[in-house]
């Protein structure tokens, strides 16, 4: 038996639903791509311009790195629970005392994931006088993608990364050799 049948066209979704679903899907994929790209961004390399950031010190002073243009910046990441940080604490302060009067070098201490009472006790213990502040929301350490503490980043007068020291400085002379080269 042969019969001719007419088949009903399959019901389709309205065009606007398809468009919205497509836009949402593309947006979601874009979001994932953006996140992955951010996650895979490498650390700031030597010679790269360091993005500007702000450090709020323990005494409430706000320091913008944009305002330090023309100065060499010694940026030291530390923590009160970090034993190797203690090894270089005195050397850093000694170097700061040397450059402080000249005004050509700025020292910034960034306290990495620490508690304020212990951090203040640490600063007091080693007599550190250059500006120090907490790394709020770990934004500064994330920008530099530090691997631990202590780490010291030295920026030249143009705000470009000049050198990186992973671990503590053995002496103030080691740090001063780098800074003096930039000041020449």
């Amino acid at each position: 038996m042969q019969t001719n049948t007419t088949t009903a066209a399959p019901r389709q979704l309205p065009l606007w639903v398809i468009a919205v679903a497509f836009v949402l899907l593309v947006g979601f994929l874009g979001l994932i791509a953006w996140g992955l790209r951010r996650a895979n961004e490498g650390p700031i390399r030597i010679g790269d311009r360091v993005p500007a950031f702000t450090l709020t010190t323990f005494d409430g002073q706000t320091i913008h790195t944009d305002d330090l243009k023309g100065k060499v910046i010694v940026l030291n990441f530390w923590a009160s629970w970090c034993k190797p940080c203690e090894e270089e604490a005195a050397a850093l302060e000694q170097s700061w005392q040397k450059y402080k009067a000249g005004g050509e070098v700025a020292f910034l201490g960034v306290d990495y994931v620490d508690t304020e009472p212990e951090a203040l006790a640490y600063l007091d213990k080693f007599g550190i006088t250059y500006p120090n502040g907490p790394d709020l929301r770990t934004q500064i350490s994330q920008m530099f993608r530090i691997r631990g503490v202590p780490e010291t980043y030295i920026l030249d007068q143009e705000g470009k990364l000049h050198s990186v020291k992973i671990g503590p400085f053995a002496s103030s002379a080691e740090l001063e050799a780098i800074v003096d080269r930039l000041l020449e």
Partner: peptide, 14 residues
């Protein structure tokens, strides 16, 4: 178990 975590727990207490 780290010293840093002990400090943070103490901070919570404070």
């Amino acid at each position: 178990p780290t010293q840093a975590c002990a400090q943070w727990r103490d901070l919570i207490r404070q």
